[in-house]
Design a protein around this nucleic acid. Structure first.
Length: 865
RNA sequence: GGGCGUUUAGCUCAGUUGGCUAGAGCGCUUCCCUUACAAGGAAGAGGUCACUGGUUCGAGUCCGGUAACGCCCA
């Protein structure tokens, strides 16, 4: 083995071996209980970003551990066809050649996207492999592959037949750049400073006027009414009158409607039914016409008269200019308002009346809330449940049709002869009503999330009752960032319950977003995005994974610090060298893959084994609770601060002594081996490499999860450690060279100190210890005390006696403070009465301990003279 | 406007049934190239846990309020 660890060399070789061995298939544990996770499918044309790395690292920890625990553990991978995103990517490529999708036509364009997918879709899979994620590639799925598309068709038809999908004219959000309708949650609202323009509309009868205010003056071209609140005294007489719409000259009524916000602005609002959701509702109640004045290109329609053909923003200025010229503008004021943007391309969306397909969500909500309410499924952390409930409560119907070419075509056909709508999985040959044969399929495709929402069961073969569906559905855990709870998680629950009558997963593990080091969101445009593969190349995939998991406190965002990744890499080097050390003392390949704990461990061996047992148990408990950062922290500190810093050092002496060597060698082997196994889900590559060096039997990826036995530690090690630390500190504070041997006279009436300490003290602290009781003359010594145990150091020739004084004074002051605190507690009569007995007893013990210590320290100080 | 989150060492963050002499990584100081590792070891400095009021024998931890920052929804 090399003296240092080279991540690149280690990480290039194992994935293929794992795959060839089939260890990522649940079939490696044919008799195991099933445990399953489906991956949140990344966009097929995308690249993995650091958020994916976190998301998948968490899943890999879960699944690798379950696999090692003997479960038939399935982690199902795949990708999402990502309608708009993918279409945009391919369109951009075409644009480089000066082409638009319309130049190709639908069929050739879709072929082009498939070609793109074939070429680039594999990139994601390579990236998943690069980071070592243990997905079962034999079960890989794509939201647009045959089986999943059939599931989509099936679901659409079922929902349609159940009246849960309908087609209707509603106000939708239109993206003029993507040329498609969007759902509510695909619109991002941003606060912007705009101008609120107050416009005067004169009564047609010339008796006065009403003033309305708008941030979008161009929409006035499509006004078909003015509305006021029915309780608004100011407009009591105005209701029923008409006004003449400026510029257009249309006579439109003033109506009273409860939807108008009382006391906002002037109290009168213009009503543009074709371009505002609230106005549309008002128009429905008053039977008002809807006039479209903005088209799908965001240009003014012919209904806009002289403004026809102008872009909406140009028209905004032009309309205002014209209104001003004609004297209709009363006032223009600055105004903060939120403007919707397309979440895919950032273009300002246009609310627009449009004929689209919708999912009626009302009847689906209740059943989807129940499993969370009654605990059949849970969010981790729990607080996300409230967000989920609140969001579900005021969920509006979901616009699912998209005017794109890349996606599942809506399975609806229109009969040219009789206007019948035929919704069917299979393409109908003739009209079901008039038998006409002139049928046109709906041009639109479905929202990507319509297929994603079926992912937990469609990937397993649903609606067929396949063996996989039978065995692995419902899944056990879903791991995702909080930003797609609404897009994805909520809908999977709705559809899962509706179609399979089961909640699609039990534990919904919500993690945070990875942020840039400055705490801001990572984004390409800000230029602070970090590519996980650059990090993997520089520090290793293992280091990246370890760093992410160390930081992954439940549900919290993670600012990415390169220092952490570097520290994680250094940990890798430390582990590497710990194994090198172990291999100096145990034969390569001689450590069994499981078991092999010593029958008769020595004191240091029993100590580390007892710690290993305790830490492994804690680690397991924390992982069961999905507390990754706590779990990893435990193991990391045990490995470094206890095993490497103490046990390995103590072992150096122990293996030199024939009486203890065998047990220590054996212990060393199994402790390091168990560390490798316990760390394997976190840092799979390095542990596999080291396993091959140390164990040489099979793969750690397929090894048994360690269950170190409970070993009783006879004691003595902690006291020895305290003594060593005390000596080291004494040495450091007096600036004594490590080469200066220190004499130690041990006084041990309770027989705590053991013979083997002598060698350890010599090795760990360059101490020559004798066990012959306290010195005849105590003066001129300083001493260590721990309970009845005392150790004296003669100061003569070592340090100036006076120089030891400040040390003692400092120790006295500290102890006095602690004593005062404990006495304060005990001095409170309520404390003794009300605090639990063990807490009180503990406090009494402390007081005794501090008193004893103080007494000795004071004696010492006096002895120094 | 409503909801949620955050505020702990110089920096970035842990701290889940209230018992803490408050931890980690990085940074800093001193010493050490000791035969696993200088990508290391040893020792150390550094915190009135945002502020405020309360509950409690006891609060970083629970409750109320304030402030700053962030996110989501309208």
């Amino acid at each position: 083995m090399d003296a240092s660890y080279d991540p690149q060399a280690v990480e290039s070789r194992w994935y293929q071996i794992w795959e060839d061995a089939g260890v990522f298939r649940p079939e490696v544990n044919p008799d195991g209980e099933p445990f399953s996770i489906v991956i949140p499918p990344p966009n097929v044309t995308g690249v993995l970003h650091i958020g994916h790395a976190l998301n998948m690292s968490i899943q890999d920890v879960i699944i690798r551990r379950k696999r090692m625990q003997g479960y038939a553990a399935l982690w199902l991978p795949g990708t999402d066809h990502a309608g708009i995103a993918t279409q945009n990517v391919v369109e951009r490529e075409l644009a480089k050649e000066g082409l638009s999708r319309h130049d190709l036509g639908r069929e050739r364009f879709v072929e082009q996207v498939w070609a793109w997918k074939a070429k680039h879709g594999n990139r994601i899979n390579q990236q998943v492999r690069r980071l070592g994620f243990s997905t079962d590639w034999s079960r890989e799925r794509f939201t647009f592959d045959k089986g999943l598309s059939e599931a989509v068709g099936h679901v659409f038809v079922e929902l349609y037949n159940q009246d849960l999908i309908y087609r209707g004219e509603r106000i939708i959000n239109w993206c003029p750049r993507c040329h498609t309708a969007l759902s509510e949650i695909e619109v991002e609202h941003e606060e912007e400073i705009g101008e609120l323009t107050h416009i005067r509309y004169d009564y047609t009868d010339g008796t006065g006027s009403v003033v309305v205010a708008t941030t979008r003056p161009e929409t006035m071209l499509g006004d078909t009414a003015v509305a006021v609140h029915p309780d608004d005294e100011k407009y009591k007489d105005a209701v029923g009158k008409t006004v003449t719409l400026p510029l257009i000259g249309r006579e439109i009524p003033i109506v009273a409607d409860g939807g108008v916000e009382l006391g906002f602005g002037t109290g009168a609002v213009k009503v543009t039914p074709a371009h505002d959701p609230l106005d549309f509702e008002i128009s429905q109640r008053h039977d008002l016409p809807a006039i479209k004045v903005i088209d799908t290109e965001a240009n003014i329609t012919r209904a806009g008269g002289e403004f026809f053909g102008q872009d909406r923003f140009e028209a905004r200025e032009a309309v205002r200019h014209e209104l001003n010229k004609q004297g209709y503008i009363v006032e223009v004021e600055d105004h903060h308002h939120s403007v919707g943007h397309c979440s895919r391309c950032g273009t300002v969306v246009e609310p627009m009346l449009s004929l689209q397909w919708f999912v009626k969500v009302g009847p689906l909500v209740g059943p989807a809330v129940e499993p969370i309410k009654d605990g059949r499924a849970r969010y981790i952390p729990r607080r996300w449940e409230n967000n989920y409930f609140r969001w579900m409560e005021d969920l509006r119907d979901w616009c699912i049709s998209r005017q794109l070419w890349w996606g599942h075509r809506i399975p609806a056909w229109y009969c040219d002869d009789c206007d019948e709508v035929i919704v069917s999985v299979e393409e109908p040959q003739a009209c079901t009503r008039c038998d006409g044969s002139s049928l046109r399929q709906d041009e639109d495709v479905l929202d990507t999330w319509f297929s994603s929402q079926l992912w937990p069961f469609s990937t397993m073969g649903w609606p067929e009752n396949t063996p996989d569906l039978e065995k692995y559905y419902p899944t056990d855990a879903l791991v995702t960032a909080y930003d797609i709870i609404y897009f994805w998680v909520a809908r999977m629950i709705m559809m899962g319950i509706h179609f399979t009558h089961r909640e699609p997963f039990r534990d919904i593990v919500i993690h945070g977003l990875v942020r840039a080091a400055d705490g801001r969101k990572m984004s390409k445009s800000i230029g602070n995005a970090v590519d996980p593969f650059d990090l993997a190349d520089e520090y290793g995939a293992d280091a990246l994974r370890l760093a992410l998991l160390q930081s992954a406190a439940p549900g919290h965002d993670i600012p990415l610090n390169v220092e952490w990744i570097d520290a994680a890499r250094r940990f890798g080097n430390k582990l590497w060298n710990a194994v090198r050390f172990a291999l100096n003392h145990v034969e390569p390949g001689s450590v069994p893959a499981t078991g092999g704990y010593p029958e008769d461990p020595g004191p240091i061996d029993a100590w580390i084994l007892s710690r290993l047992h305790a830490v492994a148990a804690d680690y397991d408990a924390l992982l069961d609770e999905y507390r990754f950062s706590d779990a990893v922290g435990q193991l990391y500190n045990f490995a470094w601060s206890e095993t490497f810093d103490w046990y390995l050092e103590l072992a150096k002496t122990s293996v030199r002594n024939p009486a203890s060597a065998d047990a220590t060698r054996q212990t060393l082997g199994v402790v390091v081996r168990d560390l490798l196994a316990l760390f394997h889900p976190i840092i799979p590559y390095l542990t596999e490499e080291l396993w091959s060096e140390l164990v040489g039997d099979g793969l750690v990826a397929a090894a048994k999860w360690p269950q170190p036995p409970a070993v009783e530690s006879a004691g003595g090690v902690n006291e020895l450690q305290a003594l060593i630390v005390w000596v080291r500190r004494f040495r450091a504070e007096h600036e004594l060279s490590p080469k200066t041997q220190i004499q130690l006279l041990v006084d041990d009436p309770a027989a705590i100190a053991q013979p083997w300490w002598q060698e350890q003290l010599a090795s760990m602290a360059n101490v020559a210890a004798t066990y012959e009781g306290p010195p005849a003359v105590v003066a001129g010594h300083t001493r260590f005390t721990s309970g009845a145990l005392q150790a004296f150091v003669p100061l003569a020739g070592l340090v100036d006696v006076a120089a030891e004084k400040p040390r003692l004074e400092k120790a006295i002051a500290q102890t006095e403070q602690l004593l005062a605190r404990s006495q304060g507690k005990l001095g409170n009569p309520n404390f003794a009465e009300r605090a639990p007995a063990d807490v009180v007893a503990g406090e009494r013990r402390k007081v005794e301990e501090f008193n004893a210590k103080l007494e000795k320290l004071r004696t010492q100080l006096a002895e120094l003279g």
